[in-house]
Structure formats: structure tokens, C-alpha cells
Design a protein around this nucleic acid. Structure first.
Lengths: 253, 253
DNA sequence: ACCTCAAGTATTAAATAATAATACATACAA
DNA sequence: TTGTATGTATTATTATTTAATACTTGAGGT
């Protein structure tokens, strides 16, 4: 896949990035040969890239196992990202306020292609690890946050997304019927919020409201997670919709 | 600075990384010429690297201003980092517990060379933006967390660090006298904790305890921040040391 | 203790792919 | 409009990466 008829494209750099992206939640430390198989690059290419990334402080290397791991530099990049995105600075104090006042898990989600990505998370319960750390990507159509953002778009865009964007069956109860997802988005447009249940995690209720820009389109949403053991959807809306909308209203999209 | 007599070193990749690292808290969006001046690379090199990084989804490009910004991919890398570091998974539930029980800002800090880096942060008050987001690096000697980690090392290492590691005068009251810093570290070794005040921020008290590995050395520490307006250091120790030590005790270094 | 094999490391000739120089285009200001 | 700064495009040259291969190390099995 050495692509492009593009004389500005530096394939060596792309290969190096490929090494970085070989790491994910189920590949936390990789040997040279692991990297070869995961990236599809030549052994010697991997050798040189990994070597360089190590020297440059982007990869940690365990001297015993000789396996590579992400370094702290990866967190530093996140730090730079946070400063670069103005929505973050606007949202963070509001989320802290909400978390403090309501004691519930609250997240900031942004649209990233056909996925959402969680950019801020303030967990208030012990919950699954993946649900507590930033940077997680989920198919937009599967999530309340994704649907509520889509609901601010034109009918055509919604239809296009519902037809083509990925849907992932995460739990037995995950909604995979695209027509039903479209209904959910239509409802969200009416209501100004979206609520889901058991979509990514069983017994988890998600309530989300959009952060609209001046054009009325939302690239950001705030989402809260509530355990469905104690309460049902109606009660969640009853109790948390108002504070949630207060929160989103204070954020500059 | 095209360095190395190293035939495995891929300088093109290093140049690309240099572009990424040109972004930080005071350089949130950079034009081509900005990148040239910040990296010291040739104009055409920057052109090709930025172009490639954009195509690979590592840089966002504003079509109007033609400036580059970090992309969501930078958060995804943080996500991979979190999974790769076992301390994180062990610490996160404990920090959440503490935050929930005590309602105070709590952070996980790790030693990264001669700096500490905050890898988890659970802010519970409105506080300065930089104090709320992960990935921030601070000189280890300036911080309670850095000192308490150092205090688990040998006398020689402590002496070496106190002599050579960087110290940054962040507030008028920041301790810059290296002998006094050494005293602070000695005290931390005795006490099993370190408390500071007004070091990075005025009217901020920092209390930190180490997370020791099986060898007794700490590469990680937990730190809490308390406003010094309402309470003094003794009261902070009185009130929070016990729960803090309970927290660190539950974390596998 | 020895052997085997897989995994990591080192070396090189060959040529691809990146470079640097320069020319062109566009946007903004005087 | 003209001038200047910034971004974009093109190309010959060659430095740099490549890919192939040989060497080294270490873990597991017998």
C-alpha cells in the first residue's frame, strides 16, 4: 500500500507513523516481529523505524524482553492537543461543575470522521477501564453522542451517514438496524437530546446533548453515563436533562 | 543537528516528529513558515512533512488560514499509552475512589527523566487549565511528587539529581535553593510523604506520596492539590495523609 | 550441557526516494 | 496597482533509505 502519485508525500514518515499506530488497547507492547506482522513492513524497515523512534523518545524499550511500548511522549502530544482545541478550554470547567454538582460520570465527545472520540472524561464511579480514559473512539451511530451530533445536520447528511457509517454490535442489545438508528436521530433532533441504553455496555444509560456552533451544527457533544440498575431512562431525563443542557449551553462550540 | 553516526537512524522520520513536537501549549496552531522557524528545517522539508502528516491524519489543516493543528489522532495515541502502562489500570480506580470520598483534586504523576508527567488527573475544583489536563511535564525538583519519588532512591542519586536536574522559578515563592530542595527530599524519605506550598501556583498546597515498586523505588506518585486559602499544611496532612496513603497502598508500582 | 531455532542485530551494495533550489501562484497591504 | 510574504509546484541531483543477507544472541527442549 505504498500509495499516492504525490511527489510531496514522504513515505518514510508514513511508515514511521504506522509503527506508532500498531499499538492499541489489545497490543500494548510489541516485539520487532510483532511490528513486522502488524504493519506489513519489511523487517529491516521496522528495525530502523523502531530504532529511530526509540532514540527520539517516542518508544520505550524493555531491555530484557526487547519489546517496545508507547512512551510518555504520547501523553505530551495529548497535552498539546488539549491546548490547541478551543472547545476543550471552554468545556472543561463546565464539566467539572457538572461532575461536582451531580456526582455523575460526564464526558466530552467530538466527531472524528464517522466515529466519536472522547476528549474529556470525568469518571465518578468505578467503571470499565475503557470508559474512563480519553482518546477512545466509537462508531458514531452506536452512541448517543454521535447521534445527537448528527441530528444537527441536514436530512441528506443524516441519511448518508445512516446508510454508510459503520455500526458495531457491541452488546447483545446494541441497535444495529439502520432504520431504527435513523429514527433515534430524528427523535434527537426533535428533543434536543439523545438517550440510549445497553448500547456499548449492558445496564448503562447514556444521555447526550449537542454543543452547537454558530451555524447550528454540532461537532461536539456532552454525554453522561448512568447505571441502569437503579433508574430507568425517564428518570434519567427527568433528573439530569436540565443540568446537562445548562452545561452544554455554557460551552462555545 | 542531523546527528548520529548511525546507519539505522532514519532522519526523515525524526524530521517528521520534529514537526509534531513544534506544537505545545503556546503554539497551538502553526503556519508553514512558523514550522520552518520553530523546527529549523528547510522550507521544502517542512512542506513535505506537513503534507504527509496531514494526509496521514496527524495534522488538521484550516483551509482558510492554512495553518496546521494537532488532530484527534493525538488523543488516540494517549489512549494506546494508557492501555500500555499497567500502573494506570491499577491506579485509576483508586484515584476515583479517593476523589469520590474526599472531593479533592487528585493526580497520578510519573517520573520521566528529570521531569514528572501527570498521567491521570481528576480535578474537583475549577482550577487553572494547565492543572487539569494530562500530559503536563514539570521539573521533578519543583514538585512534591517529584521529590517524594526521588526520596525512594539512593543518597548518591538524590545528590546527583539535586545538583543537576532543572529547577524552574514558577512563582515568587518557588524554592530554587538546591540545598533546601535536598532537605525537602530528606524529610520526604523520613515521613513517607512530601508537602509543598506555592511552588507551581500561589496558594496551592501539594501533598504527595510515593507508589513504590517491589524494589522500594518509586517511579510513580499520587498527589493532591488543596487550596491554601482555607487550610494550612498541617491541617492538610492531618486530614488527607491517611486516605492518600491508603490510595497509594492499593496501587501496584 | 548441548543443540536448535526463532528473534534480534549488524552490514552492505544498489537505486529509490528524499532533497534543495527555484520558479510559480495566491493573498493581503500599502 | 504594485509589492511582499506566504504557500504551492516542479525537477535534476544525490544522499538516504532500502532490501537482502549474514551474524549474534537467547530461550526451550532433549
Amino acid at each position: 500500500m505504498e500509495k499516492k502519485q504525490d511527489n510531496l508525500y514522504v513515505s518514510t514518515l508514513a511508515r514511521g507513523l504506522k509503527i506508532l499506530r500498531a499499538f492499541d488497547e489489545s497490543h500494548v507492547s510489541l516485539s520487532l516481529t510483532d511490528l513486522v506482522s502488524r504493519t506489513g513492513l519489511e523487517k529491516s524497515a521496522v528495525q530502523r523505524m523502531a530504532h529511530t523512534l526509540h532514540l527520539e523518545g517516542m518508544l520505550e524499550r524493555d531491555p530484557n524482553t526487547r519489546r517496545f511500548r508507547p512512551s510518555h511522549a504520547w501523553l505530551q502530544l495529548a497535552y498539546a492537543y488539549y491546548w490547541s482545541d478551543p472547545v476543550i478550554a471552554s468545556a472543561l470547567p463546565k464539566l467539572i461543575e457538572f461532575s461536582h454538582a451531580n456526582g455523575e460520570t460526564i464526558n466530552l465527545a467530538q466527531l472524528s470522521g464517522d466515529h466519536i472520540i472522547y476528549s474529556l472524561r470525568l469518571p465518578n464511579h468505578r467503571t470499565h477501564f475503557a470508559s474512563s480514559i480519553v482518546g477512545r473512539r466509537l462508531p458514531a451511530l452506536n452512541t448517543a453522542a454521535g447521534r445527537v451530533m448528527l441530528s444537527t445536520r441536514s436530512d441528506d447528511e443524516i441519511a448518508e451517514a445512516c446508510a454508510n457509517w459503520p455500526v458495531l454490535q457491541q452488546t447483545p442489545k446494541t441497535l444495529t438496524d439502520r432504520a431504527e438508528i435513523a429514527n433515534s436521530i430524528r427523535a434527537a433532533r426533535q428533543d434536543g437530546f439523545c438517550i440510549t441504553r445497553d448500547q456499548m455496555l449492558l445496564n448503562e444509560i447514556s444521555l447526550s446533548a449537542p454543543v452547537k456552533g454558530t451555524d447550528g451544527i454540532a461537532h461536539t457533544a456532552v454525554q453522561i453515563s448512568i447505571s441502569a440498575i437503579a433508574v430507568n431512562e425517564d428518570e434519567v431525563v427527568e433528573k439530569f436533562l436540565r443540568p446537562l443542557l445548562d452545561t452544554t449551553a455554557g460551552i462555545l462550540g
